[in-house]
Structures are given as C-alpha cells and as structure tokens.
Design a protein around this nucleic acid. Structure first.
Length: 438
RNA sequence: GACCUCAUCGUCUAACGGCUAGGACAAAUCCUUCUCAAGGAUUAAAUCGGAGUCCGAUUCUCCGUGAGGUCACCA
C-alpha cells in the first residue's frame, strides 16, 4: 500500500502569550510527523489584524527554538490573502457562499460579509481519540467565513491551508471539536479531502478549567526557560499529560518520545497541570547532565565568593531547577559558607537537647583541639569528619558534639553538614567560629 | 440554556471482559551522620451512582449525577 506522506501542523494565533497547553499541541504534531518521517508545519494564524502582534509570534518562534521543535515549514496566514480570495470567489461562483447584507449593530461591523451557505445536514467524523462524533449543522446557520474577499476568517483559512498544505492529520485540542463540523462543510464545498482528526484532551488549571492566556496564574511558556527548566523536561512532562506509552518508565528524551508516541493511546479526559511533578521530572533530567554543564549553570547564578567546586553537590541536591540557586542565595542558605558573613545566633541554641551547657563547652573544646591537629592542607571534608566523628562516637550521643559544631559554624537551625562547611571555610575561619561559640 | 465530550488514589496514569486494581508525583513513618537536602524502605490512598449483558464488568449498553468544551464580522 502506498501511504501518503504524513503532514501535521500546529497553528497558533499570535494574540497573546503562549502557554504550555500550546506546547503540548505542537509537540504531539511534531512527534507524530517525525515518527512517520513526515513533515511538521508551523502556521501563524494572524488573520485578525486587530489582535495579532508581532511580539507574540516572536515569542512562540523563540519558544520552539528553545524546545528544539523545529518546523519543516513556516507560514503566515496574513501573507496568503490572495489564495483565500481565490477560494472565496470560487465558492461564491459555485453558490457555496454568498455576499450577505447585514444590519450593522456594533461599531466596526460591515454592512456586507461573506456567509457560507449551510446545507443543513447531519455530519459525522471519526476522531482518532474520541471515536465517531455527529453534529447537526443546522444549528450553525449560515456562518460568516470572511468579512470581505481580502479579509477571510478562521474557519475558511484553516480549511484552505490544511488542504493546500496537504495536511493529513489534524491534531489539536478538544476545544476545537465544535469547530470541526463547520470546517468539514467548507472542505466539502471546496472539494478538499478530509484529513484525519485527533482531538487531544484539554490541559486544565488547578480549578479544573482550561488553561487560558488571560489567566494571570498561567505562566507564559517561555518563562519556564527563564526559570531554568530544561527544555527536555518540559517536553517530557507535557507529553505525559494526556498520553503515556503504557509502561512504568516516565523519563524520556525527545527522540525516545518520537519512537514511542502513539495517537491511539491519547487520553480522553482532561488533565491537570501538576507543577510539583514537573519539578521532579526536571531534576531527573538535570541528573543526566554532564558535571561540567551542571557546574557552569550553577556558577552562572553565583557571586564569585561562592564559586567553589566543593559547593556544587551541596547546591545541586537542593535544587530542582537552575533558578532555585537564586532562591537559596536570597534566603541566605549559602551564607554559612561565606567567610565574610559571620553567623549570628542565639547562644542558647548551641545546646543539644537536654545536655548541660558545660558539657557542650567541653565538647566544643574537644572539637577545637582535634581540628587544630589537622593540618591546613589536609583540612578536607573527609578528614574533618574523621576527627570529629571519633569524638562524637565516644560520647553518649553524636548530637551533643555535632549539633553545637554545626550550629557554631552555620548559625542556622537547618544547614548542610558541618564537615563540608568546615572545609569550605578553611581551618582558620572554622576554628575562629568555634572559639567564638565557646 | 442548546449542542458536544469526558469520568480509576489528592494529581499524572496502567490494567486482551479474568490474579490481591499496578507505577509515578505529592503526603506520612522509619533508616541512613545532630538539622536540612539527597538516597533507601514502608504505609495510607481510587474504579462517580444505579440498572442491564455476561460464568465473570474498571473495561460493553442504558439511565442518572458530576465535570469540562463550544455556541463572534476571535482563533
């Protein structure tokens, strides 16, 4: 059997900030096209001159560049007016559409528009995800398909473009399901072949409503890049809302997704966007990165005084996206590693549980003595740990030594362990902080 | 309101009509160096309700309920 080359398209309108819902639409179209060695088209639906803005188009172009979802072709509907005009003329000539005199009710309305002559019939299409869906098009009336020959509207342009661009699979969100009968009718009128449809479940916000451009809670997709998420994590995560390959694996690269993707396994019901799981998945992808890249990324957020290789693992295990470094910094979580920021604390907190202050002092003295014996060049995490643990293990509980030492060095209830802090601070500073605590 | 669609743990989801309904995120508990983090282990947590078909229903059918989408001279 000679199959037609698969052609998919993603057709956003540049009328607002692009959010993650659109990323998934683009992604599924991309995955399906690539899997079938077909073409993926990106089409800017900018026929609405009032609302379309260049900056929004630039936004999603940049977004797809970041996500590495490169389209094989790119079109702008505003540059295709002549094509739509031809179809409109032909439809009018063949009596599928007509110029209609209108009562002007609002400002900006035309007294004349082009309406589609609705055959008023039942129309059924088979959706790959949802199965057969039937509509009675009578409810649609003679809908408007263009304001004028040179001002075509959405339903007309979509159908003409999908036909002209030989689109074989229309993969889009379920919000388009009610648009489908209109588009089917226009297809029949212009003699276009019907593509296959796959309507994806909607991505919902916490309130279970569709993600919307107008919702202030919904973050523009590009901001995820600025927050330091990995593009592969975003792609992986979005792919998994509304689809999954069936096994128990969840971490996939783009090329694995291309291989595994299956239109028939798309979910029917909407899914809520769960940012906690995104963070987890992002961390999983971060762990796969080469050490050098992790270091560079983390350093790029760090002032010079903190750019210490020893600090990388301490920071890395506490973040799930790069911008978290900034948050740690701002929250002062790294202050204990700075020689210039003396810890300030309540000395009562040096005491561990119900151990007496005298005992704590004794322990601190032991710690100082032990650390004095460690030479400056051997003052490493491992050596500090060995010498401190030797004392700690001889005590009733390790905490009565480790707690005051850690607290004296960090001045914080919660901090990384005292050994790494000691190494980064160096012998002198470590001893001076312990002395001070005494 | 009309039309259309959907319904498994809190969330994302798995389960040819057939084991005890599985996994992941989140949560809780414990372990691992005093705290935090990371890691490990464990626990709790779901088939919307009612009929029907069937030896057997999460799965098929119908009704109900609930949720969502669409009803532009926007896309």
């Amino acid at each position: 059997m000679q199959d037609k080359k698969v052609v998919t398209r993603f057709a956003p309108s540049p009328t607002g900030h692009f959010h993650l819902g659109g990323v998934r639409s683009a992604l599924y179209n991309y995955l399906f096209a690539k899997q079938n060695k077909g073409a993926y088209i990106l089409r800017s639906e900018d026929t609405d001159k009032e609302r379309s803005k260049k900056e929004y188009e630039d936004g999603f172009l940049e977004l797809f560049k970041w996500l590495e979802l490169k389209p094989d072709q790119f079109f702008r509907q505003s540059e295709r007016t002549e094509i739509y005009k031809k179809y409109l003329e032909k439809m009018i000539e063949n009596d599928f559409a007509y110029i209609s005199k209108e009562e002007v009710r609002e400002e900006g309305q035309r007294s004349e528009v082009i309406r589609f002559k609705n055959p008023n019939k039942k129309i059924t299409f088979n959706d790959i995800v949802l199965g057969d869906i039937t509509f009675d098009t009578t409810d649609l009336k003679d809908f408007v398909i263009a304001r004028s020959l040179t001002e075509p509207l959405y339903h007309l342009t979509v159908v003409v473009d999908d036909y002209e661009m030989k689109v074989t699979h229309v993969i889009r969100g379920q919000e388009h399901i009610a648009n489908t009968p209109r588009q089917l009718l226009i297809q029949e009128a212009i003699g276009a072949e019907r593509p296959l449809y796959a309507h994806m479940p909607l991505i919902l916000g916490k309130d279970r409503a569709k993600l919307s451009k107008r919702d202030p809670e919904v973050i523009p997709a590009l901001e995820y890049r600025d927050l330091g998420y990995l593009s592969e994590a975003i792609i992986n995560f979005m792919a998994l809302i509304g689809w999954n390959p069936g096994g128990e694996a969840e971490v996939f690269t783009l090329s694995e997704l291309i291989e595994k993707f299956d239109l028939n396994k798309i979910q029917k019901s909407g899914g809520i966007f769960n940012s906690e799981k995104l963070d987890w998945l992002n961390k999983e992808h971060m762990k796969k990165l080469p050490a050098e890249e992790i270091k560079n990324k983390i350093f790029s957020f760090l002032p010079l005084e903190f750019q210490n290789d020893k600090l990388i693992p301490v920071i890395f295990e506490r973040i799930s996206k790069w911008s978290d470094v900034k948050i740690m910094l701002k929250a002062g979580e790294l202050d204990c590693f700075s020689k210039f920021k003396q810890p300030e604390y309540d000395k009562a907190k040096l005491v561990y549980k119900n151990v007496t202050p005298d005992k704590i002092s004794d322990n601190l003295k032991l710690a100082i003595k032990a650390l004095e014996d460690v030479s400056e060049e051997n003052f490493t995490t491992e050596n500090v740990k060995i010498s401190l643990m030797q004392i700690a293990d001889s005590l009733q509980s390790r905490g009565e030594l480790l707690h005051p030492v850690r607290y004296a060095l960090s001045g914080k209830d919660k901090s990384p362990d005292p050994f790494i802090i000691a190494e980064i601070l160096g012998k002198n500073e470590t001893l001076s902080r312990l002395q001070k605590a005494l």
